[in-house]
Design a protein around this nucleic acid. Sequence first.
DNA 1: AATCATGTCAACCGCAGTGCG
DNA 2: CCGCACTGCGGTTGACATGAT
Length: 268
Amino acid sequence: MNVTVIGLVGLRKIGRKTWVDGDGMKKGEWTAEEDQNLVAYINEHGVSDWRSLPKRAGLQRCGKSCRLRWLNYLRPGIKRGQFTPQEEEKIIKLHAVLGNRWAAIAKEMDNRTDNDIKNHWNSCLKKRLLRKGLDPMTHEPIINNLTVTITNEECGSSSPTTSSHTSSPSGSACLLNKLATGISSRQHDLDKIKSILLEPRIASSGQDEKEELKRDHKIGGGEEEQDDFLIWDDEEVRRFMESGEMEYETTPYVSLFYESTHVLDDLL
DNA sequence: AATCATGTCAACCGCAGTGCG
DNA sequence: CCGCACTGCGGTTGACATGAT
C-alpha cells in the first residue's frame, strides 16, 4: 500500500481500518456518515466529475474512492448477498465466453457489481472448476501429463513398457512417450483435441459442458482406463524424425502429437 | 480453548482507454 | 500528433468471519 509518512502525523489510524494518507485523504472503510453524505449529494446533484465531487460533498476522500463506493455499494438496486445456483451457472457460462471481463459479465447479470462477481469467481467458482479438473481460464479439461519435466531417471524406470527393447529411451523418446501417455490417458477423440488446439478459447455449448463435466468426473474418479500405445525407443524416434511419416493406424496418439506440432508451428 | 486454514468482502492500486486542448 | 486529465477496469490486498483440527 502506498502511504506517505509525514513526520509525527504520517500514517494516522482512524478507528480500526481507516487511515489518512500523505495527501490528507481518508482511506479504508467508509463510515455511515460518509455514506449518507455521498448518497445525499448524488441524489441532489447527480454524478459528475468524480474528482471534484468529494470536496463539494464535504468528504475527505479521493474521487476514485467515492466512485467505487457508489458503484459497488451505495448505488440503488444493487443485489447483494449469496449467489443463486442459476447466477453461478450464468457467470461460468459468461466467463467461458468473455474471460475475465468482469464489467462485461456484470452487465449481463441482474444488478450484480463487477467487484462482487470477481470476488465470487476468485474465492469460489474458480476453485470449483479446478476441483472438476477444468482449467478456469479455458474451461477445458486440464491435461496434466502434457506439462511434464523430463529426466532420464524418471524415464528409465517408471513407465510400463510393451516394447521388446531393453535399453532406456533417451530424453527425446521419453518426451514423445510422455506426451503420448498424456494424450492417451484422456478419452478425447482426435477431433476434440484438434479443435482445442486450433480454437482454444471457444466456449463449449451447454450440452457439451455437461458432457465434459460427466467425463471429467469419471476420469477424476481414479478408474481411468489406459489405452494401449507403443513406447518408443531411440531407434524409433530417430526413424520417425528422419522419415516424418507416421503409421497412423497403430499409433494414433503419437500421430496426434505429430499433427499438433504442425498446428503449433502454424500458430507460431 | 487455541490455532490454523480457508472463505468472504470491501477497498486499494496501477494501467489502459478516451476525450480534449 | 502529443500530453494531460479523467474514467473505468482488473488484479491484488488485508481484515474479519467461519470452519476444521
